[in-house]
Nucleic acid binder design. Structure first.
Lengths: 109, 109
DNA sequence: CAGCAATATTGCTATTGGGCAATATGAAGC
DNA sequence: GCTTCATATTGCCCAATAGCAATATTGCTG
């Protein structure tokens, strides 16, 4: 459940696709495997990584082990982004200022 | 400059540390190498990954090649987070609702 | 232009990580 | 109790990657 585990978990496209699937709701392992051309054990491995990172959780229903999203897990990432977000918003502000200035110039012509 | 490149770039702690350093402003390669117990070529390699992902850019100043942050590069990540953010905020809303309901119950005692 | 300073490139090694087939486990249904 | 279904675990291979030392490159500076 560390920041690093989370980023590592997200660095694989298959795992990101699995998360995207889970936004739509709970799904079994076989349902999660189906869209990818990957063997079941491969998917199980990915699921383990995601669970270890705190991004999904497992429920038990007879033989099946449906997974569901733990969106709060992504807060670590969101928080990490904060200082950077501040920066790109500042850039946007400067751009807006610039546009406004240009506009003023125009109207003074 | 793809989403995958970006996530891969962020999946290494050294590279994240470098980005964090660059929030404070432009820095030379040797300045970036200094805090880490890593050889200079190792850092240069990391910088290449970050630049390829569009997260930093290089300026040329005599022999030195100072890097600066390109915070907009992180928008890809921020955008990817959007659908998930919606989910964890909904959870928060439900929590608030619950707390309010409890509060109502209390006041009716 | 010689020599130094800052960085890039190259070539190598060791580790990690994604993939698979084969097998193990555990619950359901007959 | 035996079979079947869903999934986990194990053992293996190959490719990708972080790391380094050695060397190349580029631009000052004397």
């Amino acid at each position: 459940m560390t920041l690093n585990e989370t980023f590592v978990a997200l660095s694989d496209p298959t795992r990101r696709a699995i998360l995207a699937q889970l936004v739509l709701g709970e799904a079994t392992v076989s349902a999660l495997a189906e869209p990818h051309r990957l063997a079941q054990p491969t998917i199980s491995k990915h699921l383990k990584v995601l669970e270890q990172a705190g991004l999904i959780e497992t429920r038990i229903d007879a033989q099946s082990r449906p997974r569901r999203l733990r969106p709060e897990g992504l807060k670590l990432i969101d928080d990490w982004l904060t200082p950077f977000r501040a920066q790109w918003e500042r850039r946007l502000d400067r751009l807006e200022e610039f546009v406004e200035q240009q506009h003023d110039m125009e109207s003074k012509k």
